[in-house]
Design a protein around this nucleic acid. Structure first.
Lengths: 117, 117
DNA sequence: GCATTATGAGCAGATATCTGCTTATAATCA
DNA sequence: TGATTATAAGCAGATATCTGCTCATAATGC
């Protein structure tokens, strides 16, 4: 998939949306595996099949500055008996990118609604 | 395998020996996966098949105070693109347990050698 | 010497992240 | 409109650690 200059691919939008939704539940940080589950369980199930695809998309979003990440304290992981997680968070740029993209998709809808009226 | 009171099972001795050998090469800390490789490649190949077995043995040895462990800095792991490692090190108690166990296995040999002379 | 029993060994799979290689597809250019 | 091309998606597997379940066996008790 060649990317349209400056645009986001569906999976990337799905990730940002999932993180925005989590934020509404006062969950400011989410790890990759959790995002994978959110995408698989939600309405965006088709967006993701392989995990490798997700981690690469997360890397791209961080590179773009739409997300940032930090490593969880390994002692917490050890106490829970699982690998260390990398915790992702939406940046201000990420939030506005999502808002911009929503404005873009809503705009044509309004025009169609106007035409119908 | 029921443990003889106070004794070590072969796998545990293998782990301690591998760590003692690494120490001679000025490697004071070794992670579980690396120990697995050392055991698989070395003369003690039969000691280990499944990884789960090794991690449980490492846990026992730490519980006994013969090893201690610390978590690697997750940033190092991230830079190398791999999971965080748990680094194990022989304690003084571990070293002396190994020495004691070597003395015990060498002693009967000496008696046999004496008998032969 | 034989039955009991404690516990180590093995098997399978979860958890979490990442990389190399191939394939598919959307955007671009002629 | 059709060919080219950039790059996202998918597949497979490595890396590392840990747990639940079952099976095997060595030590112990009678």
């Amino acid at each position: 998939m060649k990317r349209k200059k400056g645009a986001l691919v569906p999976l990337e939008i799905g990730i940002l949306s999932a993180l925005a939704l989590a934020r509404k539940d006062h969950v400011s940080e989410t790890h990759g595996f959790q995002i994978a589950k959110l995408l698989q369980d939600g309405a965006r199930a088709r967006l993701l099949t392989a995990h490798g695809t997700l981690y690469r998309a997360l890397g791209r979003l961080e590179q773009m500055g739409l997300l940032d990440s930090r490593w969880e304290d390994p002692h917490i992981a050890a106490a829970d008996g699982r690998p260390v997680r990398r915790l992702y968070r939406l940046t201000d740029a990420g939030l506005s990118a999502l808002a911009r993209r929503r404005a873009e998709t809503r705009a044509p809808l309004r025009r169609r609604q106007l035409a119908r009226a």
